[in-house]
Computed example of a mutant assay.
Amino acid sequence: MSAATESGDFCYDREIWGPTPAQQRYDTRSSRQHAGKDGDGYLYRGRTGMQLTGKDNYRQYRNWCRAAGLDYPDFVKDPDAVNADPWEGLVPLFYWDTRELNRWAG
């Protein structure tokens, strides 16, 4: 699935929440990305054009900002803060860096 698909061709900076049956499972799934606590699926729903999703990814993004020496909000405590500048724009860099995507670049 592409970033454009996840964000409605970059029209939405928050996951549209039905909730659908798949989204309802986010609240009780015990994977790393989703905490398995009721309400966490919605709380840590996809945000930004890249659709940062799941409590663990919000935690990783916070820690990445910390390691970069940035003065950042705590995205785990305030997930909506990720949609503010400059944080929203840095999410693609976070993904590129932490998923080592440069190795696939031409």
Rank of each mutant, 00 (worst) to 15 (best):
V82C: 13
F94Y: 04
D80F: 03
F10T: 02
R32A: 10
T98R: 02
G41W: 03
P92H: 14
G106P: 08
H34S: 15
D80N: 13
D27G: 11
W87P: 06
W17H: 00
E100P: 04
L43S: 14
D38F: 07
W87N: 14
G18C: 09
S2E: 06
G8F: 08
W64T: 01
T53C: 03
S31A: 10
A81G: 05
E88S: 12
D40K: 09
A67N: 11
A84Y: 07
F94W: 04
G89R: 12
W96M: 07
M1S: 12
K77W: 11
G36H: 12
D9Q: 12
G39V: 03
Y58P: 00
N83W: 14
Q33E: 13
R32K: 11
A67Q: 11
G39H: 04
D74M: 10
T5I: 08
V82K: 05
D9Y: 15
T5M: 09
A84Q: 15
E100D: 12
L52H: 09
S31Y: 07
W104I: 10
L90G: 07
N63M: 04
R29Y: 06
N57S: 00
P92T: 07
D56A: 11
T98E: 07
E15L: 02
Q60N: 03
D71R: 01
N57M: 00
D85T: 15
R66A: 05
R29I: 11
L43R: 15
E15M: 02
R99D: 08
D38I: 14
E6K: 13
D9E: 08
D74S: 12
R25T: 15
Y95V: 02
W64Q: 02
N102C: 09
G46Y: 05
M50I: 05
D80E: 15
R29E: 12
V91H: 03
A81K: 00
T5G: 07
D27R: 06
E88Q: 14
N102K: 11
A4W: 13
G46E: 04
G18R: 12
R62T: 11
A35K: 01
I16C: 04
R62I: 11
V76K: 04
A81N: 00
R25K: 11
G41C: 00
K37L: 14
R25M: 08
N63P: 00
Y42L: 13
S30E: 13
P19K: 10
P73M: 03
S7H: 03
M1H: 11
D13M: 12
A81C: 03
N63K: 04
L93Y: 09
R103Y: 02
G8D: 01
K55M: 06
S2W: 03
P21H: 00
G18P: 01
